[in-house]
Structure formats: C-alpha cells, structure tokens
Write a protein that binds this DNA or RNA. Structure first.
Length: 273
DNA sequence: GTCGATGTTATCAA
DNA sequence: TTTGATAACATCGA
C-alpha cells in the first residue's frame, strides 16, 4: 500500500506523537510480525525512549535510547493508528506499544505482510548493508539519476520499482511519473535519451512533492495515524483510470501488465518507440 | 460460490 | 542480468 509519500506522511505525524515518549508496554498478537522474535521485542523496547523517527525508502526507522532501532515495513496494508488511551483492540490490530506519558500506538495490517525488527546498533548497520536500499529520489541529482539509468538494461518501469535502484517509488507513483514524462513503461532503460531522463527525474520529484503535500493517495486501504486518508488520488492522471479519458489528450487510457504489475498508460502521450 | 485484483517484495527457475 | 511465476494474506467487487 504505502509508497514514499504515504510513508513520509506517517513518519512526520509519528514524530509529533511519539518522540520524547518512553515505552511502557508492548503487546504482540501476531508472532510472525516480529522477525527478530516476538518474545524478545518487549524486553528490547521496554523503558526505551523514542528519540526520532525517520524514513529510509519505504521503511520506518524509530531511533531509541541506547541507539537501538525499531524498523518497520508496512508492505501492502500496514498502518499505524494513534489512540490517546488504551481502547478495545480494533480488527486486524496485531501489535500495540503503550507509553508512560500516555498514548498508544497500534499497528494494524489486514494482509499481514508487514513486519517489525528490533535491532541493536551493530545489527542495524548490518541490516542496512544487507538491505542495500537505493538512494532516496530527493537525495539524487539529475546527473546521478541519468548515469544510473543508462548503465542498466531492462525496462524502465520494473527498474523504477527496484528499491535498490531508487527507493520509495511504488506502482502508483511510477505510473504517474512515467505518464507525466511521456515515457512508455516498457521502454528500455538504457535507450532513454538524456533530455527524457532529465524530464523523468523532474516529474518523479514533482509528483512525489505534490503527493506529500496532499498526504498521499488513498485508493482503498491507506489511512494516516488519525484514520484520515490522503488526497492525492484525486490528482491521479492514469493510475486506476483505465478506460477513462486522458486529461491531456482525451484518448482512452489503457491497462497493461508489466513485470506482473498493473500498469496504466495513455497510449498517445506515452508512445512505444 | 468463484475468480481476479489489490498500494510489496522475497524467492526460485529459466 | 533479467524475466516471469509464485507465494505470503484478507477483502472486495464483478
């Protein structure tokens, strides 16, 4: 579910809620959620203070006292919910973190693909290496982007979805950025011209910035910490608009499958060359 | 009831 | 190196 703009929104909201709070209790109902061991997590977190929350690609990283880290990936349907006080556990809530100062952070995940890692400093460094997360689009220069692009074979869409190539993009924002740049998703990466690469890079950034400003896209499941959805879905040009008219040229939008993912294009604005 | 699809990604085979 | 299929899981809509 959540891509860079949704995760960024969640991280910003989390910061305001949990930074400076001390963990009072942890409850886990779905053991497989905690890959570093569900029984170890409570001991790991108890009494720790949250110093910061940041985003690494689509990962959420909580920094705790003692330089310990709590790493979370939301995968398709993971979401955090905030409650001022403990309440009846809502459906699909699999984990709860309670704070000494009050407040409860709940993790809900309908499809149960998301996961948690409790990592000591050395383990966190090892995890970063093993994960090999690519650069954040906002940390990349247009020149870097183009250089990385032309050194790769394969089609542009799967490449943009590859988190080692660039991190944070998912199915929605890749389709939106490719449309905005007028590039067909099957285009070979190493055959994209310099000016096209520059355009694509600019469109990726502007799509992401606008999506962050509107607190992400709510297509079905995504909700922020307060349960409120994002607004960017109303600005989608192609994603989920199969058969509707292109807002630029008016012709019918099409759906195809690329790399096993639903892909949305305007056949006229994104000609295959 | 059945089928196909869903914003992610790891893994395995070719 | 790249690709396609499959799997993890629950839910929704046709």
């Amino acid at each position: 579910m959540p891509e860079l703009p949704e995760v960024e929104t969640i991280v910003r909201d989390l910061r305001g809620l949990v930074v400076g709070r001390r963990i009072d209790f942890v409850k886990v109902w779905l053991n497989k959620l905690v890959r570093t061991g569900p029984r170890r997590l409570a001991g790991f977190l108890l009494g720790a203070e949250i110093h910061g929350v940041r985003r690494r690609g689509k990962f959420i990283v909580f920094t705790l006292s003692g330089e310990k880290r709590l790493v979370v990936h939301l995968r398709m349907t993971g979401q955090f919910l905030w409650a001022a006080a403990p309440e009846t556990r809502p459906k699909h809530v699999h984990l709860i973190i309670g704070f000494e100062e009050g407040g409860v952070l709940m993790y809900r995940d309908v499809r149960q693909f998301g996961y948690f890692l409790g990592l000591q400093p050395a383990d966190y460094q090892a995890w970063l290496v093993s994960e090999d997360i690519g650069p954040d689009p906002f940390d990349l220069s247009p020149e870097d982007f183009r250089e990385r692009l032309c050194s790769r074979r394969g089609r542009i869409k799967p490449l943009l979805l590859d988190q080692r190539f660039v991190s944070g993009l998912g199915n929605i924002y890749v389709d939106e950025a490719l449309f905005a740049a007028g590039i067909h998703p099957l285009s070979p990466a190493d055959r994209i011209r310099e000016d096209e690469a520059r355009r694509l890079f600019d469109e990726i950034l502007s799509v992401l910035k606008e999506a962050i400003r509107l607190r992400g896209s709510t297509v079905r499941d995504y909700r922020g910490l307060t349960g409120v959805g994002g607004q960017f879905q109303s600005r989608h040009q192609v994603y989920g608009r199969t058969g509707e008219h292109c807002l630029v040229c008016g012709c019918a939008l099409e759906r195809l499958v690329v790399g096993g993912r639903s892909t949305h294009i305007c056949p006229r604005c994104q000609p295959r060359r």
